[in-house]
Design a protein around this nucleic acid. Sequence first.
DNA 1: TTGATATGTTTCACAAACCTAACTTTTGAT
DNA 2: ATCAAAAGTTAGGTTTGTGAAACATATCAA
Lengths: 137, 137
Amino acid sequence: MINKEPLSQSLEDYLETILELQTKKTVARSKDIAEKMDIKRGSVTGMLKKLAQNNLINYEPYGYVTLTPEGKKIAMEIERRHIFLKDFFARVLKVDETIADQTACQMEHAMSKQTFQKFKNFVKTIDACPNCRPDNN
Amino acid sequence: MINKEPLSQSLEDYLETILELQTKKTVARSKDIAEKMDIKRGSVTGMLKKLAQNNLINYEPYGYVTLTPEGKKIAMEIERRHIFLKDFFARVLKVDETIADQTACQMEHAMSKQTFQKFKNFVKTIDACPNCRPDNN
DNA sequence: TTGATATGTTTCACAAACCTAACTTTTGAT
DNA sequence: ATCAAAAGTTAGGTTTGTGAAACATATCAA
């Protein structure tokens, strides 16, 4: 398979949001995407078209939005990262939940697959080590 | 002092680059900024004007560029983060130098001051703990 | 001093993502 | 079945950051 252009941070966020809605409400609607991402409805339409062009979602005008297998794969990867990073910031670093969430949202796009894997291994080791818990202030 | 708009990631990168050049070559020139950031000279001019408007650099057409105290303060903060994060990825996670550098460059903008502080404390604790070194693969 | 070359600037164009406001389609209550 | 409200789309703007290419200035060797 040819190496595709990497997705923009924004498009990745859309995929992630669509996955969440799909999971929680069985179906993703334009309005809910807009609300969740704090973006106007009109802007969402344009981005949905882009995602559809990239075969990442199934999109028909005025219809529901669903992830294609490829889109879902990417969305799940982002979601996993998000969850992991948020947990790291909140539980390990004791950062406030909201901030942890925001920070995770920024960083989930920044690491390569390999780097993220190493980070996960690292946190796993830390978690298994009782005397390396800093008291974060 | 009133809370200013936060700088864009891009403008922060410019400040960081200017600081590096200023340090290494005593003076920052447009061409060197362009080369280091892999951006065309013409684009640099526009961004220098923005930085000057924000009182972060001293800029005269056809002149050298220097950081104002305020600009230097910000640049140093970014640089510190960069160095710290790069070190974390390279030394602790054993990520390849180049990748570590790239990743740091993305992430240095993503954390709040507080969060970054907690992260630093965390790494310090880890470093002091001999048996929590994962063998990253 | 002069003029080629390097450096800096300007202008115009462009892509990505967004917004606003008007318009269209769908939905749901009656 | 009808028609208002809700949801979705479209068209036209805006902002940010960039590139290309022409133009302006500075520098330096002869």
